[in-house]
Amino acid sequence: MTSHQGRLSRDVVESLTLDTEPWLSCEECFDLMDSYAEAVVAGTEPRRRHDMEVHLRACPACFQEVESLVALLQQDSAD
């Protein structure tokens, strides 16, 4: 097991009580993440921004992947 060992830390309590409406699946998040990341990098309004933000707050794996795509696009545009 991990070091967390069943601890209800403040972060965990916050995460357990997150409001994850409106529903967006990881698959839909994957479908949207390319245009979302481009909008973030361009500073324009992403499609379904609110739904994506709710999902990314609630889903660390998707967050990690979107964050990485944004960083890669930024790196590309800096080259």
Partner: peptide, 19 residues
């Protein structure tokens, strides 16, 4: 566990000077 769940804003307009 991976990155701490988002306090980092990914929203449009919040990235640092990227164009």
């Amino acid at each position: 566990r991976g990155p701490e769940p988002v306090s980092v804003a990914l929203a449009a307009g919040t990235t640092s000077g990227a164009t």
